[in-house]
């Protein structure tokens, strides 16, 4: 890769404080790689411009006198003007060439970023909501369609076609290690691609201001081997696991007798609303509430009781449940693998 000739790249990556799972400078996919390459190339070109200009101003400043009061002003200076015209002309020539180079590089990179070949892509529909992401893997048969939230599983080495849409305001889908961002606009549906080579979990974030919880509208892209991905898909296609213990059975009752079913779906039960995330396999997720909390019994309980404290403004109302009801509910949800 050409980019490795830039020692600076190494420097920037080695900077302390850098976890690298949410960074433009740590590409994990070809598209982000192309852009990173372009970034450094333009950076160095402009850095040279910067050095030249600073040198020019430095030269001017070096001659300056702090107290050379009121020198008689020069009105005519043919010799000076001649030199000046020459300098300005050259600089303008260089500027035009530089801009042209930047433009061409950008267009070429733009083509490379868009021009992924599509062999049997995986298609995903992403619908942005205030403030979470609904993710579906559409299929012509309804019962073969997977619906999940915020965590996007994909196979490595396979192109992924993303169909986008928004249910409310404008959001923007951005996973910096993978590719540039795309706006999701209500009233418009569009599509783009990406592809990930290295398995891993890549963080993403809504990048267009969308109201109160714009800050907590994260997602993750979980890239795994094709086998793991297939296994995950099979798991997701199943309806919700039936509760096994008495407590879990009671938990399901709590779920169905409270407001939960007005907003959530658990396939295989009566809950079939789409205002909130599909919870059929909630226990299989690493994080809840759009990457706000790790998915544990404690956080889940805290979230259910008072989501407004954790994520003020979130479109889920508080549920003041009795402690044992809550316990049962959490047990039930934790069982929904």
């Amino acid at each position: 890769m050409l980019s490795s000739i830039f020692a600076w790249r190494w420097l920037a990556q080695a900077m302390p404080l850098e976890p690298g799972h949410h960074s433009v400078l740590h590409p994990a996919a070809p598209q982000a790689g192309h852009i990173e390459w372009l970034y450094w190339l333009i950076f160095w070109i402009l850095f040279s411009v910067f050095v030249l200009m600073i040198a020019a101003f430095g030269r001017a400043g070096a001659k300056a006198r702090v107290r050379g009061d009121r020198a008689f002003p020069i009105i005519e200076d043919e010799e000076g003007d001649r030199r000046a015209s020459w300098a300005v002309g050259t600089a303008l020539g260089v500027t035009v060439v530089t801009l042209f180079v930047v433009l061409v590089l950008s267009v070429v990179t733009g083509k490379r970023v868009e021009g992924l070949t599509s062999k049997n892509p995986v298609t995903i529909q992403i619908t942005a909501r205030q403030w979470w992401w609904e993710v579906t893997y559409p299929n012509s048969q309804a019962d073969q369609t997977i619906t999940t939230a915020n965590e996007i599983h994909i196979p490595t080495g396979t192109p992924v076609v993303v169909l986008t849409n928004s249910k409310d305001v404008i959001h923007s889908f951005w996973a910096p290690n993978i590719t540039g961002k795309r706006d999701l606009l209500p009233g418009y549906s569009s599509a783009f691609w990406f592809e990930v080579d290295k398995p891993g979990i890549y963080h993403g974030q809504c990048a267009e201001f969308c109201g109160l919880q714009h800050a907590h509208m994260g997602f993750s892209i979980i890239a795994e081997s094709n086998d793991n991905f297939q296994a995950w898909q099979q798991q997701q296609l199943k309806p919700a696991a039936d509760p096994q213990t008495a407590e879990a059975i009671r938990g399901r009752q709590v779920f169905l007798q409270n407001a939960c079913l007005m907003c959530h779906t658990i396939r295989g039960t009566d809950a079939g609303s789409h205002l909130g995330p599909d919870l059929t396999h909630i226990a299989s997720r690493n994080m809840i509430a759009a990457e706000t909390l790790p998915n544990t019994s404690g956080t889940l309980a805290g979230w259910i009781v008072d989501p407004q404290r954790i994520k003020p403004g979130a479109r889920m109302s508080p549920n003041p449940l009795a402690p044992d009801d809550l316990q049962a509910l959490v047990t039930y949800l934790r069982g929904l693998q």
């Binding site: 200009m53 020019a56 001659k63 300056a64 006198r65 035009v96």
Partner: peptide, 22 residues
């Protein structure tokens, strides 16, 4: 960038060919 650059370049050469007081 071209018109902005033009202004920058004209400023620089004016400083060069004048008698700058800081």
């Amino acid at each position: 960038v071209i018109p902005t650059g033009t202004q920058f370049f004209c400023w620089v050469v004016t400083l060069w060919t004048g008698r700058l007081q800081l």
